[in-house]
Design a protein around this nucleic acid. Structure first.
Length: 826
RNA sequence: GCGGGUGUGACGGAACUGGCAGACGUGCAUGACUUAGGAUCAUGUGCCGGGAGGCGUGGGGGUUCGAGUCCCUUCACCCGCACCA
């Protein structure tokens, strides 16, 4: 162990030094270009895991690199501190959620500090602090004021285990995202944010995000799910009601052979009232309601339905069309009712075959039958309209336009755009969240809490009951209040906000975290926003990133922000795996960062994690790989400490004109490494290859030190460069060595090195000689050799001569600086 | 089913616009130093072959002087969405 460097002492020493000297604290400075690096803030679970370490190590390299390149870098950290686990802990261990949360924050902050990340801790925020949630409530009020927060009764996703409702986005495969309990549908009065008003802009502006991964943009695009079509109404025979449907295929309207309503459709009861079918329809509806969301909507579930006995009238041809109810139509989307065209929609086709409903072809493809009974599957391709009256002969595209126009003209319907995106359900029947700032007055109705009364404080003295129900429901002091308008007795809203509301604007708060009048100042956000580089896991590709974009657009609209997109560049880091699987307690394959930092130090942990894999890919944890990173840092340590004495009196910069070949080669390596590392960090975030280049430089310096004659200027330049290039990755050891070398100012205050093009000029380079594309020899040639020179050299080469003597040379391909390929034919 | 991604030594991974496949690290082998080594240093390490040489980037085909990289086709695995009318 005595051979190894004392990382414990060194890391503690420099972390204290940086903190005492306010190294990473920044203020707005219009004379310098700004750069805002942000890693997704963590939920304070109390334990830092490897995913966090990876996330923050990546961000720290970017932050330190940008700082060294002259940017004024904002790199803050905080806590996404509201949420259910705190309440569960309260139930389980009797600790108050606030206490539990703040203890966790303290613990995690301490762990985080041992990593030596360049955070400006003066800007630390916690979303559960009243200073912060005051403004989360402010956001709600602004949205309310602009008609974008509203309450409605809807069939919502209810998690029986978490005892709360969930947003659509939080339901994964019919189960609660958090606890995986099957989600139920419940009809409740809930608060929503009208994100659908922004659907088109959220979609369009994805185009303005070239710095986002295609994958994330595609996921958002699909989630928004824009589809163009036509909405129209049909008369119902014998009833004074209209049935409205949405379709993307108005061109197939003459092929409608039945209609389908979702079981929950409000018209169902009226349609069947007094009919012989009434009983079986009601039974069917009841059975569907009892099914879980999962079983109801799974693709696997077989399509089934019942005829209602009622008929609608096709407005295009006056035909009577039977109305069915079926499981495959969702009340959630469109109008909850469809026109069914079995010939040209696979779902309708399957259903029609099952129930012997006629199939009528109205689009004729090149090789498709005209008789519906001959179809093996629905035909969804292009073709010409048939059986469609005066519209016959039109293409699908033309038909869509013409029929939509006809419907509009005759008051039947009109072209519409439908989105899959739903409004964002933000009510949570939980305690540990930001209270929704609303008061219900028997006289005045729903009244927003006046801005001046914010924050609506979460009461701390509350009783947690084992049922898991929110204690706010029993907190009389909280919910009993007076109406801000009439002063009469009134009741507070006891629901709190989804924690995603808190995280939809935290990046703005970092810009002016101590502001008390407003969530942030325009001055600060104008300088810092947008976030130049945002880094986090893909699991937030839809939820958080969509909500944050929505908030940003809203804040732009109300002139609080001058940007329309919060995150210019997005890096989605891969997971940290062990034995091919995600680290998890249940699998028992967790490696704790604390252990690793204790055994090897933060520099080793950071270096390994950055070296093992490029950031966007998954990373396989390897204990041996960690050893390797540690060995490398020790090699650097020995290299530098063994050189210090010899280099003490060497002053840089020096004149590098007359160098022997070995010195010249080292200098070449030094500057080639500067170039490579700069490009790898700047352009591609390929930290793994940047580190491997630094390792190569280390190897080259070690080899050079075995030389009898050493140019100490070149050696010193190489070693100093090595440290500077390595310092964003391993900030402590490089700082220590830098100071041991006699440098007076911190390595982190150095400018990022610029390579000297002169040093990269070589006299001789290696080129490859090929015969018909196969490598036959490698030779050194003067770097300036012309094509003619290269041709001559190649043809004069003994190996080439020998191997081509019995052959005809067909042609010679010359790529200067790379190769000569002699093509022979026989 | 739709959309996206990934397949390269024993392993993690390099190879930027088609131009030396396997950088760097791990592992392994041999050697040095050593009372000892799981420390350190040196050398070697894709496969087959004694050798010249041949073969090699999931499989098959193509374009090209030249393909991990481009095109077609096929397989495997991963991720997202999933009856969205």
């Amino acid at each position: 162990m005595e051979h190894n460097y004392d990382f414990k002492a060194i890391e503690a020493k420099w972390q204290a030094y940086w903190e005492e000297n306010h190294f990473y604290e920044v203020t707005e400075d219009i004379t310098r270009p700004k750069y805002y690096v942000l890693e997704m803030f963590p939920y304070p679970s109390g334990n830092l895991h490897m995913g966090h370490v990876r996330n923050y190590a990546i961000g720290d390299v970017v932050a330190r690199f940008k700082t060294m390149n002259g940017y004024n870098v904002l790199h803050p950290m905080g806590w996404d501190a509201f949420g259910l686990p705190a309440e569960n802990a309260a139930l389980k261990h009797g600790a108050h959620p606030a206490e539990w949360t703040y203890d966790n924050i303290a613990a995690m902050k301490a762990q985080l500090k041992t990593l030596g990340i360049s955070y400006d801790w003066t800007r630390e925020i916690a979303t559960c602090s009243p200073d912060y949630y005051k403004f989360t409530q402010w956001m709600f009020l602004k949205l309310y004021e602009h008609g974008l927060a509203y309450k409605k009764s809807a069939a919502v996703n209810w998690c029986p285990s978490c005892q709360t409702v969930l947003a659509n986005e939080q339901v994964v495969e019919g189960a609660c995202e958090r606890c995986e309990t099957a989600v139920e549908k419940k009809k409740l009065e809930q608060w929503f944010f009208k994100i659908t008003d922004y659907a088109q802009r959220l979609l369009d502006d994805l185009e303005k995000l070239p710095g986002w991964p295609e994958k994330v943009k595609t996921m958002q695009k699909n989630w928004i799910g824009r589809s163009e079509g036509c909405q129209f109404s049909m008369e119902i025979e014998g009833l004074d009601e209209k049935l409205t449907v949405f379709t993307t295929r108005p061109d197939t309207v003459f092929g409608v052979t039945y209609m389908v309503l979702a079981p929950e459709h409000p018209l169902v009861e009226k349609l069947v009232a007094g009919r012989p079918e009434e009983k079986q329809v009601k039974e069917f509806v009841k059975r569907m309601q009892l099914l879980s969301e999962m079983a109801r909507t799974s693709t696997e579930a077989e399509k089934e339905g019942v005829f209602t006995g009622a008929y609608a009238i096709n407005p295009m041809n006056g035909e009577k069309v039977p109305i069915w109810i079926a499981n495959y139509v969702l009340m959630d989307y469109g109008t909850g009712a469809i026109m069914a065209v079995p010939a040209h929609d696979q779902r309708d086709f399957d259903f029609a075959r099952k129930y012997n409903i006629p199939i009528r072809v109205v689009i004729k493809g090149e090789d498709t039958p005209i008789d519906g009974s001959q179809l093996a599957e629905a035909y969804t391709g292009d073709g010409l309209m048939v059986n469609s009256g005066s519209f016959d002969g039109l293409s699908v595209e033309e038909g869509k336009a013409k029929i939509t126009a006809y419907m509009k003209e005759h008051g039947i319907g009109e072209g519409t755009v439908n989105f899959r995106l739903r409004d964002w359900l933000i009510s949570r029947q939980r305690y540990w969240g930001a209270p929704i700032p609303i008061i219900y007055c028997p006289q005045c109705g729903t009244v927003p809490v006046p801005e001046k009364d914010l924050p609506v404080l979460l009461p701390t003295d509350v009783e947690f009951r084992p049922s898991g129900e929110s204690p706010l429901n029993y907190a009389e002091d909280f919910y009993k209040t007076s109406c801000p308008v009439c002063g009469g007795d009134a009741r507070r809203e006891t629901d709190t906000m989804d924690t995603f509301v808190c995280s939809s604007w935290y990046f703005d708060r970092y810009c002016s975290p101590h502001e008390t009048e407003l969530p942030f100042t325009r001055e600060a956000t104008d300088y810092w926003m947008a976030v130049d580089q945002y880094i986090g896991g893909v699991e937030h590709a839809i939820l958080h990133l969509m909500y944050a974009r929505f908030f940003t657009k809203f804040l732009y609209d109300i002139k609080m922000l001058s940007v329309q997109e919060p995150f210019t560049n997005l890096l989605t880091q891969g997971m940290v795996l062990k034995d091919g699987a995600k680290m998890s307690k249940s699998r028992g394959n967790v490696v704790s960062p604390e252990e690793i930092i204790n055994a090897y130090g933060a520099d080793t942990a950071r270096l390994f994690i950055l070296f093992a894999s490029p950031p966007e890919r998954d990373l396989e944890w390897s204990d041996q790989g960690v050893e390797g990173a540690y060995r490398f840092l020790n090699r650097v340590w020995r290299l530098v400490t063994n050189s210090i004495e010899a280099l003490q009196s060497v002053n840089l910069p020096a004149d590098y004109k007359e160098l022997d070949p070995a010195a010249k080669a080292l200098r070449f390596k030094t500057h080639a490494t500067i170039k490579k590392v700069s490009e790898d960090i700047e352009e591609r975030f390929n930290f793994n290859t940047a580190i491997s280049a630094i390792m190569e430089l280390t190897n080259a310096i070690n080899a050079y030190r075995d030389q009898e004659e050493q140019d100490l200027c070149v050696l010193k330049e190489a070693i100093q460069t090595l440290l500077v290039l390595l310092c964003p990755f391993a900030p402590h050891i490089t700082e220590e060595l830098w100071s041991m070398m006699g440098n007076q100012t911190s390595i982190h205050l150095q400018s990022w090195p610029v390579y000297d093009p002169e040093a990269l000029v070589q006299d001789e380079i290696e080129i490859v000689l090929q015969i018909s594309g196969k490598v036959r020899d490698r030779i050194m040639v003067p770097a300036q050799a012309s094509e003619d020179d290269l041709r001559a050299i190649a043809l004069d080469n003994p190996k080439i001569k020998e191997l081509t003597k019995a052959q005809n040379i067909a042609k010679i391909i010359i790529v200067p600086g790379k190769l000569v390929n002699v093509v022979v034919k026989h």
